[in-house]
């Protein structure tokens, strides 16, 4: 339906955006608007003021350094798709965000918008949690950094205060030779996933996994780190029996929701299946000579 009546402001700086948020109770940040506009169209929210950060240049761009990869909040999915250096530097980010939404939405949707919207089935919050990202949050007192696992509080809920906005995030450097894979299941490519699982780990000379990270989306109230599964795999050689027992543990570690598209039991079984698939893909990655996802034109 049509949106509720609202005011609109386009600040010239992050500081001005924060002043606007402070000045109007219930004001919301908009950038690409690809998550917020549907919320407004369903009248699930009726903010009195939209603060449009969609033209703030200092929220754009990516920076790849030895200490990590910094993404501005306004980086769009279509930009990640075309950025060969970024895709090499952060292959899991590239693979996961390839599944975000459809062509037209990818031209406007932003990294920061997806994180701040915090849909538990969305890929970008899953990337942040699976990769131990640090979120950079601007508020009246300056910038504070928040660990990704502390950032998400529930479905569509984050630690962002009314007068704060997300300005970017930093992903830790991706060590060479890391084993990784991501799989999700959606009814159509580009739709929200019913569930998705990401895994990455290093492997020592004896073939033992270390630094294991297992993340799941669409499997709880927030994007999840499956700590019990990580502990199960840590320091061990990955084989079929271990993958099979860890898959059962993965299914037991998640807390999926029932909805129109799938019930919780189905999603739980899906997490186990997807976990087995990502482990097999990660194990065979080097043999396949698969270094990273392809770059689209």
């Amino acid at each position: 339906m049509k949106l509720s009546r609202l005011e609109y402001a386009r600040p010239a700086s992050v500081a001005e955006a924060i002043e606007l948020l402070q000045g109007t109770e219930g004001a919301k940040i908009i950038a690409g608007g690809q998550s917020l506009m549907p919320v407004l169209a369903f009248r699930l929210a009726a903010p009195p003021l939209l603060v449009d950060i969609g033209r703030l240049e200092d929220l754009r761009g990516t920076e790849i350094t030895p200490v990590g990869t910094r993404l501005g909040a306004r980086v769009r999915w279509c930009e990640i798709e075309r950025d060969a250096a970024l895709r090499r530097a952060q292959p899991l980010l590239a693979a996961m965000t390839d599944h975000v939404a459809h062509y037209q939405v990818r031209n406007r949707g932003t990294v920061g918008g997806s994180l701040a919207h915090a849909d538990p089935a969305a890929e970008m919050p899953g990337v942040a949690v699976a990769c131990d990202a640090i979120m950079h949050v601007a508020g009246p007192a300056g910038i504070r950094d928040v660990k990704s696992e502390d950032f998400f509080e529930g479905p569509l809920q984050t630690v962002l205060a009314e007068d704060e906005l997300l300005v970017g995030l930093t992903l830790p450097p991706w060590p060479p030779g890391r084993r990784w894979a991501f799989e999700e299941f959606a009814l159509r490519r580009g739709d929200f996933a019913l569930a998705g699982v990401a895994v990455h780990y290093g492997r020592d000379a004896e073939g033992r996994a270390h630094g294991v990270r297992v993340g799941a989306i669409g499997a709880g109230e927030t994007p999840l780190r499956l700590h019990a599964v990580e502990a199960e795999l840590e320091g061990r050689k990955i084989g079929e029996a271990l993958i099979s027992s860890a898959a059962k543990l993965a299914a037991a570690s998640v807390d999926p929701m029932n909805d129109l598209h799938a019930d919780a039991e189905y999603r739980r079984a899906l997490v186990a299946t997807l976990f087995e698939r990502v482990m097999l893909r990660a194990e065979h990655r080097q043999e396949e000579g698969e270094n990273g996802p392809a770059v689209h034109p």
Partner: peptide, 26 residues
């Protein structure tokens, strides 16, 4: 009117976008 069907797609500065998910002022 909420970004699912694609019928309202227009081209803004060379890129296809859903015109129902964008304010005119943007």
């Amino acid at each position: 009117e909420h970004g699912v069907c694609g019928a309202c797609t227009v081209i803004v500065d060379g890129e296809a976008v859903r015109s129902c998910l964008m304010l005119a002022v943007q």
